[in-house]
């Protein structure tokens, strides 16, 4: 996943140079199941996973969201699993999910968002 994110950083950073607007914190345009599923679908594709699950948070109110790890198996008594935190940003007309730890930016082509 880290390699994938690094690639995305490189690709998207190049694209970002072509935008003149500053990135702004953003939230989802609406809280519908359809919009949430669009975001899940785009995040899953970017992370090369079949599906992702969001943790606590309301993406129509706060730009921050987390993707939770897969649930623990019954033998995992000392697991390092931890949610990965992202924030929504909008730059020009384009929405991004930014991985907070690495600053990797994932362009969201189908998920509608608006500046907070």
């Amino acid at each position: 996943m880290i390699k994938k994110l690094s690639s995305l950083v490189a690709i998207i950073s190049f694209g970002a140079c072509q935008h003149h607007a500053q990135p702004l914190p953003a939230v989802l345009s609406d809280g519908s199941e359809e919009t949430l599923n669009l975001l899940k679908s785009e995040m899953a594709a970017a992370l090369d996973r079949s599906r992702v699950q969001f943790g606590a948070g309301d993406l129509t109110q706060s730009p921050v969201f987390v993707i939770v790890p897969p649930p623990l198996g019954p033998n995992e008594t000392r697991s390092t699993a931890i949610p990965e935190r992202y924030r929504l940003e909008i730059q020009g007309q384009t929405c991004f999910a930014v991985h907070e730890k690495s600053d990797a930016r994932i362009e969201l082509q189908n998920t509608p968002c608006r500046a907070l």
Partner: peptide, 20 residues
């Protein structure tokens, strides 16, 4: 190292607590 986490990490989608 794993720090002493001092905030909500957001494991539970149904949680009443805000991440962070």
């Amino acid at each position: 190292p794993i720090p002493f986490y001092n905030e909500v990490l957001g494991f539970d989608s149904g949680s009443s607590l805000s991440t962070g």
